[in-house]
């Protein structure tokens, strides 16, 4: 599976003509994807890494339900796709997301930088390898922010007598 790397494959005739794709770290802590053509270079995409990137978690809040569940699972450690689904079932959630929904959400969150792909390792239950995911610091911050938001809602529900008061 492609990491947050170059998402495309080069057309064979182009490669033979001398074109190449590369990632380059610019001076201003930005990563650029470059298509190198003989006599020329063309920039395809540019995004920032490091501090700049992290500040952008607000645009992902509030998280979708599936996304929050994914972050919840990954906060505890690295999981693979089906493992996350099993966690959701174990939590007693009534509407379990479909596999397609789950993996689209995973792709979206990798794109947003909230999670990243870890190594491919064997699963305890089977002999086959699976793709594992790991939460990033941005993802952790986003998960905490959303959990706080949910907590505040629960508190308000208790005050409004929708939920019983906490038993200390």
């Amino acid at each position: 599976m492609a990491e947050r790397g170059l998402p495309v494959r080069l057309w064979e005739p182009a490669r033979q003509a001398g074109c190449t794709l590369a990632r380059r770290l610019d001076n201003d802590a930005c990563v650029a994807h470059i298509l190198y053509v003989p006599h020329m270079e063309m920039r395809l995409a540019r995004y920032s890494v490091g501090m700049d990137r992290d500040r952008g978690i607000d645009k992902h809040l509030p998280l979708r339900r599936v996304e929050f569940h994914i972050l919840l699972s990954l906060a505890a450690g690295e999981r693979h796709g089906y493992g996350i689904i099993q966690d959701i079932e174990a939590r007693g959630e009534t509407s379990i997301p479909d596999v397609g929904t789950m993996y689209r959400a995973l792709a979206r969150m990798v794109e947003a930088g909230l999670i990243e792909a870890a190594d491919r390792r064997p699963v305890p239950a089977a002999d086959e390898r699976r793709n594992y995911y790991r939460i990033t610091s941005a993802g952790m911050r986003a998960a905490r922010a959303d959990a706080r938001r949910l907590g505040a809602l629960v508190q308000a529900a208790r005050i409004g007598r929708l939920l019983p008061k906490e038993v200390k």
Binding site: M1, G81, Y82, G100, M102, A125, A126, E128, R130
Partner: peptide, 21 residues
Amino acid sequence: LYPPDFRDEMGSAVVEAYMDR
């Protein structure tokens, strides 16, 4: 049924997850 990009990236993972299920 998925578009080719998504298939390349996630297709096998989706199939594997379904096999687990």
